[in-house]
Amino acid sequence: MAAAAAAGAGPEMVRGQVFDVGPRYTNLSYIGEGAYGMVCSAYDNVNKVRVAIKKISPFEHQTYCQRTLREIKILLRFRHENIIGINDIIRAPTIEQMKDVYIVQDLMETDLYKLLKTQHLSNDHICYFLYQILRGLKYIHSANVLHRDLKPSNLLLNTTCDLKICDFGLARVADPDHDHTGFLTEYVATRWYRAPEIMLNSKGYTKSIDIWSVGCILAEMLSNRPIFPGKHYLDQLNHILGILGSPSQEDLNCIINLKARNYLLSLPHKNKVPWNRLFPNADSKALDLLDKMLTFNPHKRIEVEQALAHPYLEQYYDPSDEPIAEAPFKFDMELDDLPKEKLKELIFEETARFQPGYRS
């Protein structure tokens, strides 16, 4: 834990890192770190609560700039109880001085990944967590956004079992017609939660990839272990087919990539493993919904509104309290091709509203 900075004593240090967030945020305490930044909790002297502050230093890398800009653009436009918001952003007053960006968010005690390492969940908890994931996802999908990296560590939890989806750095506007060349190379989302079509096709992607990830998360809540822990690309596919069985001819016809289709045709026939054999203690309604989410063919996979209306979630289902976005989200430009200098300018502009004396 960093010592509390005395008023006016300059930035606090946390594990050798400068955290320049005073005077409003003090009493910093280390939480963890990701690929390009550290997260601390801090005391907000204005709202009198502890908050989470993520320090991001992305400006050396085009990919990190892209992810940072995506996350900020999306989260500043989203407003939903099951999606983490941005409360404040701290950065230098000029673009030349801006080396880091500090993002202030609600402090959540833990995440689903940490929880599943230590606790076996009751059916009631599984049901409530799944409902909140789908409630947040309904809003995301209504904005025409794909999260693309749903996994237990991106689901934040607090002691009252509130759940918030975080990390929109890989999110995209849904565009089933656009052929994202190089899709697989830039697709760094965790393999275990990846839909089979991501490994088999490169053309376009749809909201059904997020539903697949939610199915993987439900299976993990039922058993405290990942359902498809593939060691590499082909191993991942083999794990999936080992449980779902061989795809039907109709399902194979959806695979545009001939090499991928021929690979699947070359494999020995596998039978589907019954879900109640894998999860003998699970609620039968939970397994019915799991089956509809972990469907090989993305066109037959359940959609988020149908999933919310499934009998497993009937005690929570309330369409009048499951809000959607006001308007579909649009990125003005494809960020993939922009140089990091341009992305830095866009991050600077996007964060201006939090600067003292800002006038829109």
Rank of each mutant, 00 (worst) to 15 (best):
I95V: 08
I74P: 06
S153L: 08
H269S: 03
V104A: 01
K342V: 04
H180I: 13
A5H: 05
G16H: 10
I83M: 05
G22R: 14
H299V: 13
E326A: 14
A6W: 10
R148Y: 11
I84C: 04
M108W: 03
Y317E: 00
Q132A: 09
Q17I: 12
P229M: 04
G204L: 13
C40Q: 06
P152N: 04
E12Y: 07
L137Q: 15
E303P: 00
A219P: 12
Y187C: 11
L112N: 02
D167M: 01
T190W: 06
L267N: 00
E197Q: 09
L241G: 11
L308V: 02
I227V: 08
F331I: 15
I72T: 02
Y263M: 11
N201M: 07
L137W: 01
F129E: 09
Q306H: 14
L28F: 11
Y205S: 13
V18P: 08
S360I: 13
I255N: 14
M199S: 07
P328E: 04
K330M: 15
S223C: 14
I89L: 05
K270L: 07
N297V: 10
F19E: 11
C161Q: 10
F354S: 13
A42E: 10
D210T: 06
M98G: 06
Y25V: 02
F19K: 12
R225Q: 02
Y205I: 04
L264C: 03
L244Q: 13
K73R: 13
A174N: 07
H239R: 00
N123C: 10
M108L: 13
N257W: 08
H299Y: 15
T185V: 08
L75N: 01
R194K: 14
V145Q: 03
L150R: 03
D210A: 12
E81A: 10
A307D: 11
R172K: 10
K99I: 01
G10A: 10
A3T: 12
Q119E: 08
E341L: 04
N45S: 07
F59P: 02
K207T: 13
K54W: 03
Y30C: 10
Y36P: 05
E250L: 03
A309D: 07
I74W: 07
P152V: 03
M199Q: 00
H80R: 02
Q66W: 08
E71S: 02
A92M: 00
M38Q: 12
L156I: 05
K344Q: 03
K340N: 14
Y113L: 09
P152S: 12
V145L: 13
K203H: 10
I347V: 07
D291R: 10
D283K: 00
H147S: 10
N297D: 07
R148A: 11
H61D: 02
V46W: 12
P268C: 05
P339C: 09
K117D: 09
I126M: 12
P93M: 05
S208H: 05
E12V: 14
L234S: 13
D210Y: 15
L107C: 06
L116K: 03
H61W: 02
I89R: 03
